[in-house]
Each structure stands twice: as structure tokens, then as C-alpha cells.
Design a protein around this nucleic acid. Structure first.
Ligand SMILES: [Mn+2]
Ligand SMILES: [Mn+2]
Ligand SMILES: [Zn+2]
Ligand SMILES: [Zn+2]
Lengths: 152, 152
DNA sequence: ATTTATATTGAGACTGAGTCTCAATAAAGC
DNA sequence: GCTTTATTGAGACTCAGTCTCAATATAAAT
């Protein structure tokens, strides 16, 4: 495999710790995710696998994504379109998302001031912060002329 | 009606502008929403109406909520549990939400610094900001002892 | 290498929030 | 009151995601 083999080893360890088994389907799914930088839904991954002649069932993709999420390999997110999306979490530090309402493009951002204010605000309320969602919806640079023509 | 009648008038105007009709069901749904401060899902509203001997169909509640959202009477939100929630938007300025993972309690907050940073960040990317979601998930003050006992 | 115990898989049934259809009903304007 | 047409409710439908279960594959033991 050209994809970093250490990730597969790490996955194997994670599985073993839970009494789970390393199967060809699980490896294929993880490799497909590691090879992508995108925020993909289940079927994107499924079709990507199939286009590489790898046949896996949709149920197995969902089941594996759940394991990968728990193991910290994958981030599961929801941009409000009724489907979950998954992104390769390994190479990336925490970030949030700007989402273009026109073309679906996703721009990643982080802001330490915002992160700090979140901590501050939750402390004020004696609230123990576990995780957060911060999504900025709007029109990306490329879509602004197009959107203006439609009157957005 | 004890609920502000001006709101019903305003609703009537909104409907008329779209060629829609003011029906007893629509009035009942709006009044139920105006009487609540909570972030409720469709069935909460439906059962609340039924407990007041008002029988409306689920489809009509959904249909009315859509009109109310477009008209700015109601805010539709999603806290990631697979259902939409609706809150009375009229008396409140913009705010975001802290959500307790243990009891579901919702604490509202606003922070002008965060709001300003959002504008700044989107400008940097030449992204036209339309709306945003900012949700802080964690354990509320009341649930912290209970959560500690469970090992959270 | 064979055997054994059990985790995993795929096909398709199932779930549940939300939407759609359509015949019956009700609002609004005349 | 009459006419036009928007609205309603019942239930069919959609679709992402979950569950079931018999067949299969893994990994450990022998
Ligand atoms: Mn991302
Ligand atoms: Mn709120
Ligand atoms: Zn765009
Ligand atoms: Zn709580």
C-alpha cells in the first residue's frame, strides 16, 4: 500500500484493544478515507471504493465509520443537509467550517480568539465544554458573481 | 386571546402578502409557539396543542412552521439529534446555544467578540456571511456531579 | 495446518423524521 | 350565499441510517 502503513497498524491496535478484527473491508475503507481530503458522505466513500473494484456493503461502510470515529481517525459532521459527512482527521488540527450555500465548497478555519471565548463563556456558566460546532454559512468568493445575478 | 394580538395581526399581514389564508390551525400553532420559551420539536408542539383539546395534523404543524420560519416568527435549529427544533424568535435578539449532553438543557449566549471575529474571518476569505451555527456541547452545572459518578 | 469460537459481512427488512398526494373542507372576496 | 381556490388530514411515501440473521472470515488454540 502506498498509504502510510503505520495508520493501518494503528487501526489494527485500536481494533485489537476492543476485541474487533482487521478485515479487508475495514482496511479498504480506512485507506479510501486516508486518501481523501474531502468532507464526504457515506455514499461518496462507497462509490469511490466501487470505482476501484472494491465491493463493500453500505452497512459495512457505516459500521466502519463508527469505529473510525470512536478511534479518532475520522471526524463526523453535519452541515444541515440531512446527511452526515466524514473527513480524515489524522493530519489535521482542530478547525471549523465555512460552507458555501451555492456550491457546497467548504473552507476550513480556526481562530484562537474564538476558541478562547468559548472556554471563557462556558466557564462563566459553570458548563463543562466537551466539543463544539461552529459553521459559517454564506457565499464563497467564486460564487458571488453568480449569486448576485440570481439576486442573492 | 391573552397572547399579544398584534402578533396575530402581523401574521395575518404576512400571510396576505403571500396569498395565504389565516386558519384556526395556523393561529393555534402560532399561539402555542408564542406561549413557550423552549426549543421544541414538532411533536412537542403537536402534543401541547392536543393537551389543549386542539386537534391539528402533524403535516399542518410542519407546514405552518415553515411559513413561520420564512416570516421570521420562528427559528428552526438542529442540535444534531436528528430532529429539528423550533423556538419563538420574536422576543429575542440573536444568540447561540450551549447544549447539555446529559439532560438536554439549552443555555443561550451571545458574545460580541465572537460575532466580530466571524465577520473578520469571512471577510479575509472574501466569503459573504449569511448565517451561522455555533453550538457548545458539554455538561451543565446541574449535571456535573451526576456525570462524574458515571465517569464522564 | 486444522479446528474452534466468535466477530463480521451483505442483503434486505426496518425505522423515523419529514414530505407529498388527493379528496374533502373552509377562507375570502364578490 | 356563491364561487374560487387555499388548506386540511389521513396515510402513502422518501431516504438516510440501523438492524437482523444466515453465511463467512478472522484469529487464536491445538
Ligand atoms: Mn474539515
Ligand atoms: Mn435559543
Ligand atoms: Zn461557492
Ligand atoms: Zn444538564
Amino acid at each position: 500500500m502506498t498509504i502510510k502503513n503505520s495508520n493501518i497498524e494503528h487501526f489494527k491496535d485500536t481494533l485489537q484493544r476492543e476485541g474487533l478484527r482487521l478485515t479487508s473491508q475495514r482496511i479498504a475503507i480506512l485507506e479510501d478515507i486516508l486518501a481523501s481530503e474531502e468532507h464526504r458522505e457515506c455514499d461518496d466513500i462507497l462509490f469511490s471504493l466501487r470505482s476501484n473494484q472494491i465491493s463493500v456493503s453500505r452497512a459495512t461502510v457505516y459500521r466502519t465509520l463508527e469505529i473510525l470515529e470512536k478511534g479518532g481517525f475520522v471526524r463526523k459532521m453535519n452541515i444541515g443537509d440531512g446527511r452526515f459527512r466524514y473527513e480524515n482527521k489524522l493530519p489535521k488540527p482542530h478547525h471549523d467550517h465555512m460552507i458555501c450555500l451555492e456550491c457546497g465548497r467548504i473552507i476550513e478555519f480556526v481562530d484562537q480568539e474564538i476558541e478562547a471565548r468559548q472556554v471563557h463563556l462556558t466557564k462563566q456558566h459553570h458548563f463543562k465544554l466537551v466539543r463544539h460546532i461552529h459553521q459559517l454559512f454564506g457565499i464563497c468568493e467564486d460564487c458571488q458573481p453568480a449569486a448576485a445575478n440570481k439576486g442573492v
